[in-house]
Simulated scan of single mutants.
Amino acid sequence: MMRDFSSSSDRIVTVFGGSGFIGRHLVRALAREGWRVRVATRRPELAYHLQPLGKVGQIHAVQANIRFPESLAAALSGAEAAVNLVGILAETGKQSFDRVQAQGAAAVADAVKNAGIGKFVHMSAIGADANSASAYARSKALGEAAVLSATPHANILRPSVVFGPEDQFFNRFASMARLMPALPLIGGGTTRLQPVYVGDVAATASRLLAGEGRPGAVYELGGPAIRTMRELMAFVLAVTKRPRVLAPISFGLASTIGGITELANKALLGLLPAEFVFTRDQVELLKHDNVVSAEAEAEGRTLKGLGITPESMEAIVPAYLHRYRKGGQFADERLA
């Protein structure tokens, strides 16, 4: 008798921006929970790699663009739930923070409202602040406000720095250590962060869509420990076995350098290696700690509040940073 590998669930969840870093982990988590996952992205061909994460026919990609409401409506047709992961870490070309993270969030929320969908999770970030000097933080706050205005039942997720095998945090600094004799400590490296595992972020969204948590609540997600940028850099160097100088530079000097690298990258049509590019906006973000607030802790709007025990970076990160060692992943192995 032929075995049926198709999904038996009729529950459809649409994940906007599901082909990215957080998206692939969320798609896997939702598939395991029995959802039929519709990955909505500007370029569906870039989401085909997600199909093996579920049963045959359980995961499929559709074309959608936040600039075209009709494409959002089509992507949500027949769906019971939705997630918006669309976001950028730096502005490039027409992809501005305001267009993607404020206007884009509003467009998705309006589409969710018009579709009558009752379960909606929107990805934001710790530090979202309408009064921030950072354009990134302001756009995140505007996106949150638009989402809650259109869909008051929505849940907002505010993670700290997210880590995992494909992250742009630990991987970036490990790559820098491979290419440079020193790593910059912007503002002296005293900024505090609370790195959170991407699998825990995905589990949070999955639980909220399953009806756990409080509708309309903003959840702040951080790992089990708070570390300074200096401590995180030292951790990367220890794991990769790359002795490098940790060089403190002031916020003012870092902002000047950031402006220069922004101009150089534009002149080179975006071809400057990512390891050598940081922006003035990113420097602005580093002026403030990126940790879960005391209010969120007290009110249970955290991983712990949802019954999730966060994974530590020490347990996860070495497994994917080993490849940055001078002799490669197996440099320390010897024949017995």
Results as ranks from 00 to 15, higher is better:
residue 115 A to V: 14
residue 228 T to Y: 12
residue 263 L to Q: 14
residue 185 L to I: 04
residue 264 A to R: 06
residue 202 A to D: 07
residue 330 F to G: 00
residue 102 A to F: 00
residue 121 V to K: 05
residue 32 R to C: 02
residue 87 G to I: 09
residue 144 E to K: 10
residue 195 P to Q: 06
residue 285 L to T: 11
residue 215 P to S: 06
residue 237 L to N: 04
residue 309 T to C: 06
residue 305 G to T: 05
residue 202 A to Q: 10
residue 106 A to E: 14
residue 264 A to S: 12
residue 168 Q to R: 14
residue 312 S to F: 12
residue 115 A to R: 12
residue 89 L to K: 12
residue 188 G to C: 08
residue 54 G to Y: 00
residue 116 G to N: 07
residue 240 T to D: 04
residue 172 R to Q: 13
residue 225 A to Y: 08
residue 221 L to K: 08
residue 274 A to Y: 00
residue 322 H to E: 13
residue 177 A to I: 08
residue 38 R to C: 06
residue 128 A to H: 08
residue 265 N to Y: 04
residue 242 R to N: 13
residue 41 T to K: 00
residue 298 A to R: 15
residue 151 T to C: 15
residue 95 Q to L: 15
residue 57 G to V: 02
residue 127 G to R: 07
residue 161 V to I: 15
residue 233 M to K: 08
residue 25 H to Q: 11
residue 252 G to M: 02
residue 46 L to K: 15
residue 282 Q to L: 10
residue 253 L to K: 05
residue 249 I to R: 03
residue 139 S to E: 06
residue 161 V to R: 01
residue 37 V to Y: 03
residue 260 I to R: 05
residue 316 I to T: 09
residue 183 L to I: 14
residue 162 V to P: 12
residue 140 K to H: 13
residue 61 A to G: 11
residue 239 V to G: 01
residue 280 R to T: 13
residue 11 R to H: 13
residue 235 F to T: 04
residue 89 L to C: 03
residue 34 G to A: 08
residue 1 M to C: 09
residue 185 L to A: 07
residue 143 G to C: 09
residue 6 S to R: 15
residue 280 R to P: 02
residue 10 D to S: 14
residue 274 A to P: 00
residue 175 S to T: 07
residue 244 R to Q: 04
residue 326 K to M: 04
residue 293 S to Y: 06
residue 308 I to T: 10
residue 205 A to I: 08
residue 156 I to H: 10
residue 210 A to P: 03
residue 44 P to W: 00
residue 203 A to K: 11
residue 324 Y to V: 09
residue 85 L to F: 11
residue 13 V to W: 06
residue 162 V to S: 08
residue 295 E to D: 14
residue 184 P to C: 05
residue 169 F to Q: 01
residue 261 T to C: 01
residue 234 A to Y: 03
residue 194 Q to W: 12
residue 157 L to V: 07
residue 296 A to I: 02
residue 27 V to L: 00
residue 211 G to Y: 06
residue 168 Q to S: 11
residue 44 P to G: 00
residue 177 A to G: 12
residue 131 N to S: 14
residue 291 V to S: 05
residue 272 L to E: 03
residue 309 T to S: 15
residue 139 S to W: 00
residue 201 V to T: 09
residue 45 E to A: 10
residue 208 L to N: 07
residue 48 Y to M: 01
residue 297 E to T: 13
residue 239 V to K: 00
residue 47 A to R: 11
residue 185 L to R: 01
residue 336 A to M: 04
residue 30 L to I: 00
residue 204 T to M: 11
residue 225 A to D: 14
residue 121 V to S: 10
residue 15 V to Q: 10
residue 241 K to Q: 15
residue 126 I to E: 01
residue 142 L to N: 02
residue 72 L to S: 09
residue 132 S to W: 02
residue 287 K to Y: 01
residue 48 Y to E: 13
residue 305 G to N: 10
residue 294 A to E: 15
residue 153 H to N: 14
residue 2 M to S: 13
residue 250 S to E: 04
residue 243 P to N: 03
residue 154 A to I: 11
residue 199 G to M: 04
residue 277 V to P: 02
residue 139 S to H: 04
residue 225 A to G: 01
residue 155 N to E: 11
residue 148 L to E: 09
residue 272 L to K: 03
